[in-house]
Write a protein that binds this DNA or RNA. Structure first.
Lengths: 175, 175
DNA sequence: CATAATGCTTAGATAAGCGAAACATTCGAA
DNA sequence: TTCGAATGTTTCGCTTATCTAAGCATTATG
């Protein structure tokens, strides 16, 4: 019985190892998500918007306009939700609605001057810490981080949803 | 003028590089967050709960009980929000409220048998893909991923919020 | 041309979240 | 010891986010 116990302990140990490693990686992922979520809230409220409104505004800001359907897909919510969100953004003067000329079923949610200004002003809070620390890293470290993040993202992706940067990097260009 | 242009192009190129690298890393981060958010929703609805309710349940499940104050801190929301959330979980039979003996201002939110069962059953959907792929990696790769994730988490952490795994790893033990 | 498909909005509902105030309990002086 | 401050939770009133189902244009298709 002694030998069997030793074996049992040995095999048990390696399973504990993998469990704790998965735990470690999930804890780190959780920290990343929590930090980003809190940053997002902070950023949004600094701009006088809610987090969801700000996310939508950022998506619109990428090209200057976007359709509700695409915004909904990008945010992983229904179109009806976007209608309400855009209502708020229109009321706040951040975007406007314009009927598409090509296909008049479509609505283009278009960034206003104020919306552009909001986006230009706001990102600093969010990115400052990450961007500046990331910039300070050596080339190979940056490359390695990107590779690892992409790898993790791929491991997590069930379907491949196109996720453009919600955290825009516009601010760094002004340095 | 030709030389100056060459120099200008050279210096410009390196700045574009860093911008695009930050973009790459933020895109990957965004993919990670989106995937995790969607997983979370899926997982919760499989358990017949909402994402927020499930997150709270997971926190309670770690020790078997927890106070509203701690749950609120861990989830980054106000205590008032937790009161409502716990109401729902109590109504669903997943947890119960019990006055603390030590300090009767405190309430212990305690996992019920049903709650334990929900947690034991549910995680599979969420973790399967990530866990199985992660397990398949070589030792050094796992270690490297953890190191990188922790590094990124630290770069993002403004304050150091304690984030235990919201994605529990219980299921892997049943293999 | 009629009908299906598409894109968006409306309507009605529930959940999540907040701040302020109310309550009960414990702690800390004076 | 007793009274006021601090603590932990809940209640209240309100806003936002979200969903599904249904409705309304508009475009595409057989």
């Amino acid at each position: 019985m002694i030998e069997t116990n030793i074996l049992a302990v040995a095999s048990r140990r390696s399973e504990d190892d993998i469990v704790s490693r998965i735990d470690d990686s999930l804890i780190a992922l959780r920290r990343i998500m929590l930090a980003t979520e809190l940053y997002g809230k902070e950023l949004a409220s600094a701009a006088g918007l809610t987090a969801a409104q700000f996310r939508a505004l950022q998506i619109v800001g990428e090209k200057g306009w976007e359709t509700p359907k695409v915004i909904a897909a990008r945010m992983g919510v229904s179109q009806a939700t976007i209608t309400a969100l855009v209502d708020k953004l229109v009321k706040a003067g951040q975007v406007s609605r314009e009927r598409s000329e090509r296909d008049r079923r479509q609505t283009n949610v278009t960034l206003t001057g104020l919306g552009r200004q909001t986006l230009d002003d706001a990102p600093d809070a969010l990115q400052q810490k990450y961007v500046s620390e990331f910039e300070a890293l050596a080339d190979w470290e940056q490359a390695q981080i990107i590779a690892t993040l992409e790898r993790v993202a791929t491991m997590l992706d069930a379907e491949n949803i196109d996720a453009s940067p919600v955290l825009t990097t516009g601010d760094i260009k002004h340095h």
